[in-house]
Design a protein around this nucleic acid. Structure first.
Lengths: 146, 146
DNA sequence: GCTTGACCTAAAGTCAGGTTTAGGTGATAT
DNA sequence: ATATCACCTAAACCTGACTTTAGGTCAAGC
């Protein structure tokens, strides 16, 4: 059993954040002794899950939903799996999007490199979109595909 | 020359957003005729750049900085290139992070699949971390690497 | 007996990136 | 001449995830 201050140290999270998470219902099993929060192994595990789910882009209210499912036992395994599967779909789409953005940035870096060489954007502008070098053209096309 | 309503249609952006961008200084060259904004090709190009830079995760104030560089002419090509290069570094790091998160989600999906089969988490818990199947173990390790 | 330190609460504040509201101007249509 | 429409402004409001503030409890040390 740990106090909020000890948990704050352990996870490198401000005490105010831990109290905020508690208020949002992220520690549904947490006990108190004369008003003071007692963090047990359950809450430590919950915090690890919270950090994971936050990294994956889930909102607090969705994390709460997951925590509530956890309390309800084995019958909620499918629902919990569904949350992770949906988030995996979201993440795959996001990674694909970011790879297109990366191509846009690659194109822009190349563009300004040419402009710096030439002292103007005229030549490089005139190359868009058909006279670009092959790999740059591919990046340009990826960047402008939605 | 277009009105704010026409541009709103063209880009599918609310008028309020265009006014907000203007207020943030994202159209440094924009003209007005008796108080009314006139969007020219310059502003249309600016909007395309804004959408690109926003997709890449840049904040409004950084986009403003870029727009201000554009106004200052060819001497700012290196500074503009630097902005894109820095953002490319950020994005590469973000994509790498998201790939680790993806491994975490893959692991969690597998975990609950096993738990659903077994009707409990006992067996799958006991496999962590050394008795996991090879590809799951790799996902688990990637997910827990920072 | 009083200060310090760790805990507690409710409520207000912060930040980004907008959106909404309330009120105003000027051209066109009935 | 009056209603409507597209534009304008400043300022308030919104959301999410916290953080800060102001005030309160309680045990330990001097």
């Amino acid at each position: 059993m740990y106090t909020i201050g000890q948990i704050s140290e352990m996870f490198g999270l401000p005490i105010s954040t831990l109290r905020y998470y508690d208020k949002q219902g992220l520690f549904p099993k947490m006990k108190r002794v004369s008003g003071i929060r007692k963090f047990s192994d359950d809450e430590i595990e919950a915090l690890r899950v919270i950090e994971c789910l936050k990294k994956s882009g889930l909102e607090i209210k969705d994390i709460k939903q997951f925590m509530d499912l956890c309390v309800k036992g084995a019958s909620t395994y499918p629902a919990r799996k569904a949350i992770f599967e949906k988030q995996r779909e979201n993440l795959l789409a996001e990674i694909a999007r970011l790879n297109n953005v990366l191509d846009m940035l690659n194109f822009k870096c190349w563009y300004y490199e040419q402009a710096i060489c030439d002292g103007s954007e005229d030549r490089v502008q005139s190359m868009i979109p058909d006279k670009l070098p092959r790999d740059i053209k591919i990046a340009y096309e990826n960047a402008h595909r939605d």
